[in-house]
Amino acid sequence: MASKANKPQLIVDGKRLDGRALNELRPIKIQASVLKNADGSAYLEWGDNRVLAAVYGPKEAMPKHVQDPVKAIIKCKYQMAPFSSMGEHGRSGPNRRATEISKVTREAFESVVMLNDFPGSEIDIFIEILQSDGGTRAAGITAAAVALANAGIHMKDLIYAVSFGKTDGELILDLNMIEDNYSECDMPMAIAPRNGELLLLQMDGNLTKEEMKRGMAMAIEAGKKITAIQKAALQETYKKTEADIKGSENGV
């Protein structure tokens, strides 16, 4: 964590250091179905974050004693590559932060996946943060939702995640690394767009009830854009084939 004493001014004339407005998302790009072996996958670029998510399953739950005879279980692993951050080489292997993120991510998906449709099975979600620049858990959940839909896993909704924070007395959406380091609070959320319910919620720092309400509204507004990008990525896997066919029929 950076020391608050050296805090740069993060908002100048209503704009953030990277030129964004207070309620503006970083650019997001998603590509679905990128890995051959996985049942579903997605590659996501969110600002400088680079995330690969993959899904295997439903498959027979192993070891057998973890099987639930009436529903599927979800396993989730979030981890960060040792070369993912600007700066020193990271340590590989699980740490407390990654373990916690894996758990809350799994729980977010447990309430949207139709677990009863696949009794005795397991669904594995892998989230690899290849490059990190703040907000990786939100990016990971947004990518994993696309990977799950790409795998044809039955879900109530295509969920997304985003965070907001507070700095220089203003609320800001979608914190990057430097904003996250100096911000007065950070509140990542995973949201089901069809009813606005929160499936993941974490927060630390200081926040009034009024600010919380405004921040959540900002996240839901941004969610419309994120959802549209997720759906476009899934549709693209089918459009691409149509374009390829046209190409090959024009004598290529």
Binding site: D48, R50, A81, F83, S84, S85, M86, L130, Q131, S132
Partner: peptide, 9 residues
């Protein structure tokens, strides 16, 4: 150069 945070990739 797929990972710009790394020195090489």
């Amino acid at each position: 150069n797929v990972i710009s945070h790394a020195e090489g990739s």
